[in-house]
Lab assay of single mutants.
Amino acid sequence: NITNLCPFDEVFNATRFASVYAWNRKRISNCVADYSVLYNFAPFFAFKCYGVSPTKLNDLCFTNVYADSFVIRGNEVSQIAPGQTGNIADYNYKLPDDFTGCVIAWNSNKLDSKVGGNYNYLYRLFRKSNLKPFERDISTEIYQAGNKPCNGVAGFNCYFPLRSYGFRPTYGVGHQPYRVVVLSFELLHAPATVCGPKKST
């Protein structure tokens, strides 16, 4: 009989979020998941679920829940969905086509923008091939755009693969920082350890 609540607040209220190319993952297990707390949290810009209804989450049990978190621009949030393409979905964070879970995003301009620009948040701009679902690539190898080998030196046709967002408070909404948490639900042939409040007695 599990009684402790799942530590969703640790994920959602973290002081610093990860850059999207180096997205953070927390495994959540052996706890009671009260999703209504999240669902009623006012400032969400997006709360979209795939393969599961957000209002039914509290009735369900899962083997594991993974909480992935990172920061992207407002106009990139739409790429955090199954079957998407674009710089983020291709080179930074890719969801599987059969994704079961929820994508939760909110504007973090007050936290993550600075006058003069916040350059701490990076994304991958160049990559030889697209990421596989949930693949994480933190390499900083110089990207070779031409035929000539770069030998690890940036220059003509040789690019550092990461780019900084440089968030400023005055940017338009599409270019403002958004914090994103992706909850993915794993249902294995194993005992369920993460259940909603109704199922955990």
Rank of each mutant, 00 (worst) to 15 (best):
K128L: 07
R163P: 04
N13E: 04
Y93D: 02
T193E: 12
P133D: 06
N107T: 04
A89T: 06
R127M: 03
D68E: 02
Y91D: 03
N130K: 15
E76C: 00
Y123H: 13
A14R: 07
L188G: 15
Y121V: 06
Y39R: 15
K56L: 09
N157P: 07
S78I: 06
A42V: 10
A192I: 10
F44Y: 10
K199C: 13
P54Q: 11
Y21V: 06
T140M: 10
G86F: 04
V32E: 08
P169H: 09
F160S: 15
D112Q: 00
Y21H: 10
T3Q: 10
C49N: 00
R179Y: 04
K110P: 08
F41L: 13
Y171T: 14
V180M: 04
I104D: 00
Y178H: 15
A46D: 10
V65C: 09
P7L: 07
A33F: 15
T170Q: 13
A105S: 11
F126K: 15
C195I: 10
Y21F: 10
L60I: 09
L131S: 03
C31M: 05
C6M: 04
P197A: 15
F47Q: 03
K56S: 12
R25A: 02
S113Q: 05
F17L: 03
D34L: 08
Q144Y: 05
N30W: 04
E135M: 06
S108K: 01
W106I: 07
S113Y: 04
N87E: 11
G74D: 03
V180D: 00
V103N: 00
T201R: 14
S200Y: 13
P133A: 08
F156V: 14
P169F: 05
Y159L: 12
F160C: 11
N30R: 06
P7V: 08
D59T: 12
S29R: 10
G83Q: 09
V180L: 03
N1R: 08
D97V: 09
N109E: 10
R27E: 10
L122G: 15
D34H: 04
I28N: 03
C61Y: 07
R73W: 03
F156I: 13
V65T: 05
N87F: 13
R25T: 03
R179S: 02
N75M: 09
F160W: 13
D97R: 09
D97T: 09
V20I: 06
G74R: 09
V180N: 00
D90H: 06
F134L: 07
Y39M: 15
S139L: 04
N130Y: 10
F44I: 09
T15D: 09
A89F: 01
F134Y: 14
Y178F: 13
F41H: 15
C158M: 04
C61K: 14
A33D: 05
N130M: 10
D34F: 03
I88V: 09
S19G: 04
F134I: 04
V153G: 13
S113C: 07
T3K: 10
V65H: 01
G174A: 13
N118V: 06
L95G: 00
Q79A: 04
P96G: 05
E76M: 03
Q176N: 05
C150V: 06
V71Q: 01
E141P: 09
V115A: 14
N151L: 11
G155R: 09
Y66L: 08
N30Q: 06
N120F: 07
P149K: 13
Y159E: 15
K48L: 04
D68W: 03
L187R: 13
L95P: 02
C31R: 06
N24C: 05
L95E: 00
Y50H: 03
V52W: 03
T63M: 07
A192S: 12
I2G: 14
S129L: 06
A89S: 07
K110V: 09
F160N: 15
L122P: 01
